[in-house]
Design a protein around this nucleic acid. Sequence first.
RNA 1: UCCGGCGUAGCUCAACAGGUGGAGCGAGUGGCUGUUAACCACUAGGUUGGGGGUUCAACUCCCUCCGCCGGAGCCA
Length: 429
Amino acid sequence: MFWIAKANEYVGMEVEVRGWLYNKRSKGKIIFLIIRDGSGFMQGVAVKGKASDNVFVLYDKLGLESSLKVKGIIQKDSRAPGGYELAISDVTTIHLTSDYPIQKKEHGVAFLMEHRHLWLRSKKQRAILRIRDEIERAIIDYFHDNGFIRIDTPILTPTAAEGTTTLFCTDYFDLGKAYLAQTGQLYLEAAIFSHGLVYNFGPTFRAEKSKTRRHLTEFWMIEAEEAFYDLDDNLELEEDIVCYIVKRVLENCERELQELERDTTHLMKVKPPFERITYDYAVELLANKGFAIKWGDDIGGDEETAISNQFDKPVFITDYPKAIRPFYMKEHPDRPELVRCADLLASEGYGEIIGGSQREDDYDKLIAQIKRCKLPIEPYKWYLDLRKYGSIPHSGWGMGLERVVTWICGIHHIREAIPLPRMMYRLYP
RNA sequence: UCCGGCGUAGCUCAACAGGUGGAGCGAGUGGCUGUUAACCACUAGGUUGGGGGUUCAACUCCCUCCGCCGGAGCCA
């Protein structure tokens, strides 16, 4: 079967291109049809007298996105986008279309989101989702090349794993309520006692009423959990995988990055080591820049942007106050008011892409933490067992796939980083 | 959820100290042998988001509902 992506192997040969009409132009006795077949785009040229007259009769009826079979000979031609074009001999229709809603011009966000199922066909969206695919493959390759085992954690869960964010709720037979998972972390922690190094990769749900360019209610998260890793080991791993992902995209998605007009200067600098600054220092830095932040406050979106703009690579912020972090993070050995955690901020002001920490491995301290966060002990009994039977130091982190895609693609809003986004005000299409 | 903004032709927008609406693109018709969101000419297309109010008169002002956009908090 012929695919446009392999056109270079068919120069001089007659082929049948099957695809959709992306655009068309006519000069009267010469017409141009731009066909896309999923693998790529190709310009077909029909000249009066050479191509079948049928093509010229059909031309007027061909609405954009009509599906077609186009016969012709592949030719090298510098005037054609892509370098190859099709000298058309004949065209047959599979399905005629009229009034395709999306035009080759600017549209508003609301209109495009309403037509997301069709918008996916456009060049830019296609490039983004191809880069997303490369990122997903890079992640899976990285873990398997480095001794990690994939552990698929449940999506229906009995309680809030972190107890902090709002969850989507559903009825669960006679057992009461079930919640859509906001993280698989606690389950991954159980798995390290069996496999040492583990990861998961799946959809995550947060019923937060967030309305920003960085939030989705359904997003894909990669989480890793590592036995015997302290925070420094954890950061080295995060740094390494982020660099690997960026390298893979730069190597394999040159065309897509070009389509997005992505300036890759910053991406090419994404190599270890990343700068590590403490929360203490970050607060000081922000205060000096005029932000109204004091020690103990969380670092907001604008503040993250300000910090990441200080560095030309992603940057870690470590050791946050215990009071503003979840219960499972390990207390700092020298300063009990802090926990051994770190967020990774992407460069170019894209904000947090990874959150991680060393985990509290002391049974009594963990219980104290659960109580401090005013969470019930009962649902965490199984989790506490992990500190009773061969407890070890360990660490882990979670990376938001769409945030990484948004950053690497250099796009403005996270909604374009996932095929069909789910947001506070959007459940359709 | 809170704060701010916007709903006018299929799409993107214009018109407004209140005097019954225009353009580009798209669509239709005709023309053109190398176009790159082609171009040129002509044609059609609107109870100005819904409801209520003020007024001689409302796209324009007020109230309300709906939809969407941007931002905040929360987080990946």
